[in-house]
Each structure stands twice: as C-alpha cells, then as structure tokens.
C-alpha cells in the first residue's frame, strides 16, 4: 500500500465514456497495461431521530482491499474512522432501525485499472444513484509510504498524463498528514471527500451519461 492521490478530471464537453477513453489511450501510450477493473462505493446512513443528536455513518468498500469494510462516523465535530472485516455490512443491516440509508445517495466510482512501473492508475466514472457525475483519477505510487517524500514525484507523474488539469497542491485531506505513514483509510477519506462534493453539486451539472 503506497501513497495515493485522488483528483478530479474535468469532462469539459465530452461524455463520461469518451473521457475515460481519452485517458486510457494516454496512459496506454505511456506504456501502462490494463490490470482488470476497480470499484469504490459509498453508502451513507443517518441515525434515527429518537437517538438524539444526528450522526452520519459512511460505509465504503474498495476493491483494492476486498476483505475490508471502511466506515467513517461523523458526529458533530468528531469523525471516527473504522476498518473492519466484511461482517460489518451485516451489522449495519441489523441496525437498520437506528441507522437508515437514503437510497439516492449511493455513490460509486468504477472503471479500468492500469499498472505502469510502480504506479497504479485507476480511471473511475463517478455515479450517484446511477447518475453520471464526473471522472476521478486515482494514482498510487506503491513503493513509497510517506506522502511528503513523493508528492513532487507524483505531481510530475499526474501532470504527465493529465496535462494542466493535474493537481498543483496535495489533496486537502492529506495536507495535514503529509509526514505520516499512509494507510488505506487515507484513500477512503479522499474518496469520501470527493463523493461529498459531487453530492452537493446541483443536479443538472455534469449529467451526461
């Protein structure tokens, strides 16, 4: 598990599949080979009113860690992350009377997964309750575990195939954690950040299936 940077790629006036196609061609031209597909999904549950103060639980799955369920509990000022095994999903079903999910909020990002040298590149099409929302590009540099050491290197790589749309600053979530050892939970946090942004987007924007 190495440092991962997640960034949004503007679709401009292309459709989702077209954008993925353009990016796939670019990364293949650099010498990448496709290694299957990937999927990250997020379901959000809110606590029932009788529990008092409202709490939100985001439950995420990442195909890179297939045996783990990640969950992030937001209660006012605090957020509590949790990495558990697959049974957590069943536990959430048992608690359906306390935590209910809004069906319209299920977000996922899926698409092709490429490997190029020690980098792993994932081109995800983001859909929220099966409406197309945008493109998320995930780049992982697997040998390195401390973001501050390899940020410049990853920025160069990202700009190499995203052009000017590549990020110039580290993701907001990582900025306070640049010196720490990277963990899969950090990737999940970044996805959640982007999914939250997509959810807040007005319905009409980017709705090109």
């Amino acid at each position: 598990m190495g440092v991962t940077i997640l960034t949004q790629f503007p679709t401009e006036n292309r459709t989702g599949p077209q954008t993925i196609d353009v990016l796939s061609k670019r990364i293949s031209a650099l010498g990448a080979s496709q290694q299957g597909q990937f999927l990250v999904d997020c379901e959000t549950y809110t606590s029932a009113p009788q529990l008092g103060h409202q709490r939100i639980v985001h439950v995420l799955h990442n195909s890179e860690q297939p045996a783990t369920v990640f969950s992030i509990l937001e209660s006012g000022t605090k957020t509590i992350p949790l990495a558990t095994d697959g049974l957590f999903d069943l536990l959430m079903m048992k608690m359906s009377s306390f935590y209910t999910s809004k069906k319209q909020t299920k977000a996922e990002s899926k698409g092709p997964r490429f490997e190029i040298g020690d980098f792993c590149v994932k081109l995800g099409t983001v859909t929220i309750s099966s409406n197309f929302k945008g493109i998320l590009v995930e780049v992982e540099y697997r040998p390195c575990v401390v973001p501050v050491m390899c940020w410049d290197l990853m920025k160069e790589f990202l700009q190499g195939f995203l052009g000017l749309s590549g990020p110039t600053n580290p993701p907001a979530y990582l900025q306070n954690r640049m010196q720490e050892i990277y963990s899969p939970l950090d990737t999940v946090h970044q996805y959640l950040e982007h999914f939250t942004m997509f959810r807040k987007m007005p319905g009409g924007v980017g709705m090109r299936p």
Partner: peptide
C-alpha cells in the same frame, strides 16, 4: 530516493522511475 530530482534533467520521473 523519492524526493530528489535528477541533477541532469531536473525531473523526478524518467521511464516511470525516480
């Protein structure tokens, strides 16, 4: 290893390697 750019070309990555 990961943070220093090449002294000659000034880039970090060449051939997908630092």
């Amino acid at each position: 290893l990961f943070s220093a750019p090449c002294k000659r070309c000034g880039n970090h990555i060449h051939n997908n390697l630092p």
